[in-house]
């Protein structure tokens, strides 16, 4: 199974850090970065395939299209069978994210900065989901 890792984050420093972290954590898959939700959703609308697994790191506060809007659109076509969304939050300010919690596509919330430790956990949960599913 192919993995695609989508980074949706407007802050280039975070993107940089995330890319580094992913590399260090040795997450499988092709990494693609987007500066906000709009290019990301456009990409997915065109390229989405059942045959791929999508790991999506989503920042919430972004210009043009923010994380919430992106989620609303993603929900209309993406399936939990091959999609996991990790929501990046810059604080423990949970109010913003309450409404995202209920969404099945959202796998977890990750508070910035994303450490290697966190990415390891993420890696485990990804494997948990997709790799085990395949065995079954």
């Amino acid at each position: 199974m192919n993995y695609q890792i989508l980074l949706i984050e407007d802050d280039p420093i975070f993107t940089f850090l995330l890319e580094k972290g992913i590399k260090h954590a040795d997450l499988k898959g092709e990494t693609i970065s987007f500066s906000n939700g709009k290019p990301a959703i456009e990409y997915l609308t065109n390229e989405y395939s059942d045959q791929k697994n999508y790991i999506i790191f989503l920042d919430l506060n972004m210009p043009v299209m923010n994380g919430w809007e992106f989620m609303d659109q993603l929900e209309s076509f993406a399936s939990t069978d091959n999609c996991m969304v990790f929501v990046l939050t810059s604080s423990a300010y949970r109010h913003d994210i309450e409404k995202l919690k209920k969404k099945a596509l959202v796998a977890d919330f990750v508070t910035k900065p994303i450490t290697e430790f966190l990415l390891k956990g993420i890696k485990d949960s990804i494997e948990d989901r997709f790799e085990k599913n395949q065995i079954i």
Partner: peptide
């Protein structure tokens, strides 16, 4: 909000960057 989105962001970045250097 400012705290979470504006203050936390650069702090988080710093932390991440520092981490990167340290590790």
């Amino acid at each position: 909000w400012t705290q979470s989105h504006i203050v936390r962001a650069p702090v988080a970045r710093l932390m991440g960057l520092v981490d990167l250097l340290r590790d």
